[in-house]
Amino acid sequence: MSAEDLSVPQDPADALAAVVALRRLADQLEDAAVEQAMRAGWSWPDVAEALGVTRQAVHKKHVKRLIAAGVTLRRRQ
């Protein structure tokens, strides 16, 4: 889908609210996707590369909740 195809709502309030909602959806999707990947045996560097962030960033953001959930994590490389 090109930028031209994406219809921006006419009302600025709707467009701005969509930004907020998309950010929240992206956060939820990231939490679910990172957990899915780590449960499938992905490494921190691979998950970081897939997300386009540093491995330190992805590790810091997600490690505690995954350990608390009992997910078996590969050693940080």
Binding site: S7, A15, A21, L25, A32, E35, R65, V71
Partner: peptide, 27 residues
């Protein structure tokens, strides 16, 4: 409101079947 705001840009929440992610109990 969440669903309505996503719909405004063509995103349907019903097309996502997100597993509930684990939470950090201390966060």
């Amino acid at each position: 409101e969440f669903e309505h705001s996503l719909n405004a840009v063509g995103v349907s929440l019903s097309s996502y079947r997100l597993p509930r992610p684990s939470r950090d109990p201390e966060r």
